[in-house]
Every structure is written in structure tokens, then in C-alpha cells.
């Protein structure tokens, strides 16, 4: 048994699954600071989707085609390869081969959102108002929290602007972040809301 434990610890270097053979991390671009800080996986925010990047390290074998199953789909469901957070709790996510052999599993947590903050794409947190010149833009990423715990998962938050024409809120292909483009001088308030929780930031546009 002692030999087995030593072997398990050696073969599992860097793998975060319970059996030390595979890991689940978020799909992030290499230069996306806001995304890369999601590692290791934080609890998933209720209502959010997490797009996992599964990798395995099995001695003598390349990674087989792996599929995910949730132990408790009422807490965390697997839909079209994404993990969808349903209600607070924990659920094991089984990483299996197509013929059903479990290669590894990882327990994941789901928590409600109690606070939303905004950050720039480089990770800098927005603490006050934003000033832009006409024609400038800034990309904002909402960060979801449960008290002091940062949450993960892509959310489909609602973005609204208090006055029309001052700034435009543009999608850039991501489900959560938005690019604010300054259109005309003035002051406006941008509000981001999700699941009954909201946060706002004042944007001043100068000529």
C-alpha cells in the first residue's frame, strides 16, 4: 500500500483531480489576466456557465476522449460540455472515458452571488468613476462574489446605461465582458445586474 501511495503522488504531479490523473480548469486565453486568475477553480456562481478545459496525465497513454458527468445535476449540470450552476451545494464532476471508466473526479461548489465588482480586462479593479475622451474605449469585466469568496463562471449580466448617446456598450464576443466606447461629452452611469444584484460605475466623457 505504501508503494501505491508513493506512485499515486508521483504520477499525479500537477493534476488537481481526486485521483491525481486529470484536472478541470477554465478555458482562458493566455493573455487574459482576468480569466487566468480564476485558477484554481473558485465556486461557480448560480446561473453561470463554466466552460471546462479537461486534461489528463496518465502514464503510458495520451489523453483519451473524456466526457463529464455530474454526481448531482440539481446542483451542477453538464449541458453541451459546459458546467451550469443550478443551486448552492457541492457535486463531484466525474471525468470518464466514453466507455464509462472513471479516470478522475473533482468536487465543485456552487454559491449564490452577493456582490458584483467591475475590473478592467487587465485585472485592475474599478474603484471610482471612469474618464474617457470621445473615441476612447475601455473593456470592463464583471467579477462575481459570495462575500469574500470570488466566484467563477460566465454570466449573462444585463448592462444598462442611464443616458443615451454618451457611451455605447459593445459586445466583444465574450458573454460577460463589455467594451465601453465614448461617443459624446457628458456623464452617464453604467449598471451591471445579475440575479437581483447590481453594481454601477459613473463614466465621464470629455471632448
Amino acid at each position: 500500500m505504501r508503494h501505491l501511495l508513493i506512485l499515486v503522488s508521483l504520477t499525479g504531479c500537477g493534476m488537481s483531480g481526486a485521483m491525481k490523473q486529470a484536472s478541470i480548469v477554465g478555458q482562458c486565453a493566455a493573455d487574459d489576466a482576468a480569466c487566468s486568475r480564476r485558477h484554481p477553480i473558485a465556486p461557480l456562481a448560480i446561473g453561470s456557465r463554466f466552460h471546462p478545459d479537461v486534461s489528463a496525465e496518465i502514464s503510458g497513454s495520451a489523453t483519451p476522449n473524456l466526457v463529464l458527468h455530474s454526481a448531482d445535476p440539481s446542483v451542477l449540470a453538464v449541458e453541451d460540455g459546459a458546467l451550469v450552476a443550478k443551486q448552492p451545494g457541492a457535486s463531484a464532476v466525474l471525468i470518464s472515458t466514453e466507455d464509462g471508466a472513471v479516470v478522475d473526479f473533482q468536487h465543485m461548489w456552487v454559491a449564490p452571488i452577493t456582490k458584483i465588482t467591475l475590473a478592467r480586462r487587465d485585472g485592475d479593479r474599478i474603484g471610482g468613476s471612469i474618464g474617457l475622451a470621445v473615441g476612447e474605449d475601455v473593456t470592463l469585466v464583471p467579477t462575481l462574489w459570495n462575500r469574500a469568496q470570488r466566484l467563477t463562471g460566465d454570466s449573462d449580466a444585463q448592462w444598462t446605461v442611464s443616458t443615451d448617446g454618451t457611451v455605447s456598450v459593445l459586445r466583444d464576443g465574450s458573454s460577460d465582458r463589455r467594451r465601453l466606447r465614448a461617443r459624446a461629452p457628458g456623464v452617464t452611469r453604467v449598471t451591471v445586474a445579475l440575479g437581483g444584484i447590481a453594481t454601477s460605475v459613473d463614466v465621464e466623457v470629455v471632448p
Binding site: 504520477t11 466525474l94 464509462g100 471508466a101 472513471v102
Partner: peptide, 13 residues
């Protein structure tokens, strides 16, 4: 309680 076969890639005596 659900059971699944598992593939644990380690050698034992």
C-alpha cells in the same frame, strides 16, 4: 449509490 469502474493508472505489486 451509483458505482462506476475506474481506471487508476498505477502499478501495485
Amino acid at each position: 449509490a451509483e458505482v462506476h469502474d475506474a481506471s487508476l493508472g498505477v502499478l501495485q505489486p
